[in-house]
């Protein structure tokens, strides 16, 4: 169990560092950017997210630093221009910025198309009307997710990161971890299942 304890301690240390810019503060920054085009607020947000998006783009471009910087900058420009579309009731700022970075990556690195549904499509089956309680719950999702992720074991976080965040295929993960592909698949499935359970537990 020792390695797990070490990992948890590391996770908490990262957690503390992350709190340098809290979720509430980010929402404040986002609304200042959207409503008053506040360049000062954007500078703080930029300082926080640009290095992180750049690091993500570094891996997505297999270490091309010049391209990664360009893409991270372009992502942050999209954040500036699209700030009015950010809805704090639907997602955290970091989640929203992640989706912008990912779409940028698909456009520029994979040169692919990512078909997406349209929230305003009259054919879309809408979410159930949200009660005030559900909205508060959504706002607490961030904290719940952090706790649920910390509760996952290191090997489950590892495969989640590799398959989901790094966008590696099952066979690439199998190669890197030196595991049979079936083990990789079941581990990913189990990681998702555990995450779901932990979130359900948190919601109680």
């Amino acid at each position: 169990m020792r390695p797990k304890l070490g990992r948890e301690r590391k996770a908490r240390a990262l957690e503390d560092e992350r709190l340098a810019l809290g979720a509430d503060q980010m929402i404040g920054l986002m609304s200042a950017i959207a409503n008053s085009r506040d360049v000062g607020a954007f500078e703080i947000l930029y300082g926080h997210f640009y290095p992180r998006v750049r690091s993500y783009m570094m891996r997505m471009t297999k270490g091309d630093r010049v391209l990664a910087e360009e893409l991270a900058q372009e992502t942050m420009m999209r954040v500036w221009h699209k700030a009015a579309l950010f809805d704090a009731a639907k997602a955290q700022a970091s989640t929203w910025i992640y989706t912008i970075a990912r779409n940028q990556m698909i456009d520029s690195v994979r040169r692919g198309t990512r078909p997406a549904f349209d929230e305003n499509d009259p054919a879309l089956v809408p979410d159930e009307l949200e009660t005030a309680d559900a909205k508060i719950e959504r706002e607490q999702d961030a904290a719940a997710l952090n706790r649920a992720m910390i509760a996952l074991s290191g090997k489950h976080i590892e495969v989640l990161r590799m398959s989901f965040f790094d966008g590696l295929t099952h066979s690439m993960i199998a190669d890197r971890l030196n595991l049979p592909i079936g083990t990789v698949k079941s581990r990913i499935r189990l990681a998702c299942e555990k995450l779901r359970l932990a979130l359900r537990e948190q919601a109680k």
Binding site: L14, R18, A91, S94, T95, Y98, A101
Partner: peptide
Amino acid sequence: ESVGGYFLERENA
């Protein structure tokens, strides 16, 4: 996607 946001927060800064 919020798992994506979670990992983004923990990227090298």
